[in-house]
């Protein structure tokens, strides 16, 4: 038995080289200047440059709104898909992930073009619509997975004990499905903050999300400044995912199966 544990070694080395070291490098570049000397100036720019901090706040707002929209629209979809009395076909669930096979930028271009044809001006509204459209599958899938595997006898027991359907949902089904919602939130919130390209297309460059700011700095060869902004995002991700422990790993696992 002992020897086969060594089979994980190549992947471990790979992870150190291509995951750990690159993340360390983000920190190193963030805290040094172009000549490799230690500096806090790059990190400081986040708090002092109004353009950067504004774009960060706008991104948080858009991400929050997008996450709420995805939950409100996606939860009922997941619920209906997982309920055998409402939906008996496995094909319907597949239909919700199928669009992901068409290039996201291409779909976004088409969405923007539909708004043009309908005479709707590009801006915050169209951005939120397009974002929800892109990220909806990432919310539906983990919730669907957890609802689908949920032991139905809990809900039945509550029903037998006289709870109304609304009460069964609020007191049993909803709390049990929250880990699925949590991993959905993780797959929607931070990726929305860091989106670029999609936001450029959907707002005609009028709203710049944080991802676009980072990309712009790398485009302008300001690697240290770009690394600093990435480092700030990394810290936020670390704090938000490490605090609740590793509870979510299991639902991520569920969300990963086709």
């Amino acid at each position: 038995m002992g020897k086969r544990s060594a089979w994980a070694l190549p992947y471990f080395i790979f992870l150190v080289l291509f995951v750990v070291l690159p993340l360390v490098l983000i920190g190193v570049y963030a805290l040094t200047d172009a000549d490799g000397r230690f500096t806090l100036a790059n990190m400081g720019a986040f708090f002092t440059d109004p353009k950067i901090i504004n774009s960060f706040l706008v991104s948080l707002e858009v991400a929050l709104e997008n996450t709420v929209i995805c939950i409100l629209v996606g939860y009922p979809v997941a619920y209906i898909l997982a309920d055998k009395s409402l939906n008996r076909s496995a094909v319907t669930a597949v239909l919700f992930i199928l669009p992901m096979w068409i290039n996201a930028l291409m779909r976004t271009m088409a969405t923007a073009e539909i708004f043009n044809v309908l005479g709707i001006g590009l801006g915050k509204g169209t951005l939120l619509f397009g974002m929800a459209y892109d990220y909806l599958p990432f919310m539906i899938y983990p919730i669907y997975n957890i609802l689908d595997k949920m032991d139905k006898s809990y809900a039945e027991a509550a029903q037998d004990l006289g709870a109304s359907p609304v009460k069964v949902f609020l007191k049993v089904t909803l709390p049990l499905s929250l880990p699925g919602v949590a991993s959905g939130v993780m797959m929607v919130f931070m990726p929305t903050v860091s989106t670029f390209a999609v936001s450029e297309i959907l707002t005609n460059n009028t709203i710049m999300l944080f991802g676009s700011v980072i990309q712009e700095q790398f485009n302008n060869l300001m690697w240290n400044q770009g690394a600093a902004l990435s480092f700030i995002m990394l810290i936020i991700i670390g704090v938000t995912t490490l605090i609740p422990g590793n509870k979510n790993s299991e639902t991520v696992e569920g969300g990963a199966t086709v």
Binding site: A227, I237, T241
Partner: peptide, 10 residues
């Protein structure tokens, strides 16, 4: 867990 841009930049 990392957004694409972080993986890309790193």
């Amino acid at each position: 867990l990392n957004p694409d841009i972080i993986t890309g930049v790193s």
